[in-house]
Lab assay of single mutants.
Amino acid sequence: TLFEALYDYEARTEDDLSFHKGEKFQILNSSEGDWWEVRSLTTGETGYIPSPYLAPV
């Protein structure tokens, strides 16, 4: 399942991933609570992002 960003987000740590509203992601790991490890389909980068900022496509 692909997810889309509902809002912009600016990374706060080196493990976070900055992204823009509308960017699409592949979920790599969603078992860590509200922070999911994802791969951006736009940039190819991986990192953690807050799951409340995402919605299924």
Rank of each mutant, 00 (worst) to 15 (best):
T43K: 03
D34Q: 10
N29Y: 06
Y48H: 08
E23T: 06
W36Q: 02
A5M: 03
T46L: 07
Y48V: 08
E4W: 08
S18M: 04
Y7Q: 09
F19G: 02
N29W: 06
F19C: 08
S30I: 09
G22H: 05
V57R: 01
T46R: 11
T13N: 14
L17A: 03
P56D: 06
W36H: 01
A5V: 04
D34N: 09
E4C: 08
R39I: 11
G47S: 02
E10P: 06
Y53R: 06
G22A: 03
Y53G: 08
T43P: 00
L28C: 06
V57E: 08
D34L: 14
I49L: 06
S51G: 11
P50G: 05
R39D: 00
K24Q: 13
A5S: 06
G44E: 04
D8M: 02
E14N: 13
E14H: 12
I27R: 07
F25N: 01
R12M: 13
Y53I: 09
K21Q: 08
S51P: 13
G44P: 01
S40G: 02
Y53H: 09
R12W: 08
D8P: 06
I27C: 06
Q26F: 12
V57W: 05
D15W: 15
F25I: 01
E23A: 05
P56A: 10
E14S: 13
E32W: 12
S40Y: 03
I49V: 15
G22Q: 01
S31M: 10
D16Y: 13
Y9E: 01
F25W: 01
A11L: 02
G33F: 09
Y9A: 02
A55E: 10
D15I: 12
L17Y: 06
H20I: 12
E37T: 07
I27A: 04
S51N: 10
W35K: 11
E32D: 15
R12Y: 09
S31K: 10
A11V: 03
A5K: 00
S51Y: 13
T1D: 13
D34A: 10
D8F: 03
S18K: 05
F19E: 00
S51D: 03
H20Q: 12
E37W: 15
P50C: 14
H20M: 11
L54G: 03
D15E: 12
D16L: 11
E37Y: 15
W35Q: 07
T42Y: 08
G47I: 03
E14I: 12
